[in-house]
């Protein structure tokens, strides 16, 4: 009888746990995530902030007067020198809840609008990301798996979409829909709805997601486990759902922060051009637009949302990079046209 003990099998961590551990060790990625979550939390507190400060960030309050150190201060101050031309909005008071960042040209609290604006920007970029991922993934999976005519038709359609400069396409779609909204059968989206920029941004970026996914699916289609499933007579949709989709999930996860950053920039650009979020609603893009007319006297009105966009986008990009490295260090997925 042998006395040799059999070693217990070594407990290995699953791929998700490994990836998470890797990500947790990436300080840059985790710091970025923390910064982004802080921004999200701050924006989520927008209604609470407005209530606490007692301001309506969407209504013109040109005649409002606030108290600073016991003194009455108008939010719009008329020039008293010389010809007495023009009104200048109140500058930053640096007092939370009392026009912390000053007022805009409608006498509205810029801080409250910043928070609401961030909420709109995050909602639109987040929803547009989901929209893009669903459409892009569906298109990529179908084109890559079924091939033939289906692939040709879908790929050419994506090529056409791809051929338009992104902003030009987004601007064209916005202008068409801005006045009357969209009506597709029973679904009607009104012109001022936040869903309009969501759909427009979501559509223009579909090729960004669909093409790399299609590439991956083409490779997976020839892998042994897929061929085996096909030969066993497993239906196509089941193979796509059970065998192929799980294998592109990591790519999709990596896409989330990167697409969100891209969508945030696009939303801001469209809103800045008055074809995204419509006044009096706020987004960081519309606040920059409002601030443009105040660059000389109140530069902070344009500067602060600009900084917020830059920080958010940077945080999302750095986190996205970290996530990609954590999930698949050999991944070749890159955002871009090549």
């Amino acid at each position: 009888m042998s006395n040799v003990a059999v070693a217990a099998p070594r407990k290995t961590r699953g791929p998700w746990a490994v990836a998470f551990a890797k990500l947790a060790r990436d300080r840059a990625a985790m710091t970025s995530l923390a910064v982004f979550l802080l921004i999200v939390l701050a924006c989520l507190s927008a209604p609470l902030y407005a209530k606490w400060a007692g301001v309506d960030p969407f209504a013109s309050t040109l005649d409002a007067v606030i108290q600073i150190d016991g003194a009455d201060v108008p939010v719009m101050e008329q020039s008293t020198e010389g010809l007495g031309l023009g009104y200048t909005p109140l500058g930053p008071t640096w007092r939370l809840g009392n026009y912390f960042l000053g007022a805009d040209s409608q006498g509205r609290d810029v801080m409250a609008r910043m928070l609401y604006g961030g909420l709109s920007s995050l909602l639109i970029s987040g929803a547009a990301t989901i929209f893009t991922l669903i459409l892009g993934t569906a298109a990529g999976l179908i084109a890559g798996y079924f091939g033939g005519v289906t692939d040709t038709v879908l790929s050419r359609f994506l090529d056409i979409l791809w051929a338009f400069p992104i902003y030009l396409l987004a601007i064209s779609l916005s202008i068409v829909t801005i006045a009357h909204g969209i009506t597709i059968g029973p679904i009607q989206i009104e012109s001022g709805s936040l869903w309009l920029p969501v759909i427009i941004i979501g559509i223009v970026y579909v090729p960004y997601v669909a093409r790399p996914i299609r590439g991956q699916v083409l490779a997976l289609r020839k892998s042994e486990f897929v061929l085996a499933a096909i030969n066993l007579g497993v239906p196509g949709w089941r193979i796509l759902w059970r065998d192929i989709l799980p294998n592109v999930t990591t790519t999709l996860i990596v896409f989330v922060p990167l697409m969100m950053a891209l969508n945030m920039l696009t939303e801001s650009a469209l809103s800045f051009l008055s074809i995204g979020v419509q006044p009096p609603a706020a987004s960081w893009g519309t606040i920059i637009q409002d601030g443009q007319a105040l660059l000389y006297t109140r530069p902070l009105v344009a500067l602060v949302p600009g900084l917020a966009i830059a920080v958010s986008v940077m945080a999302l990009n750095v986190f996205g990079d970290g996530l990609r490295d954590a999930l698949d260090p050999r991944s070749k997925v890159r955002l871009g046209r090549d």
Partner: peptide
């Protein structure tokens, strides 16, 4: 004239 320059111009360049 841009609105944010009115005050300055109205006082310094009357």
């Amino acid at each position: 004239l841009p609105s944010d320059r009115l005050g300055e111009l109205g006082s310094k360049s009357m």
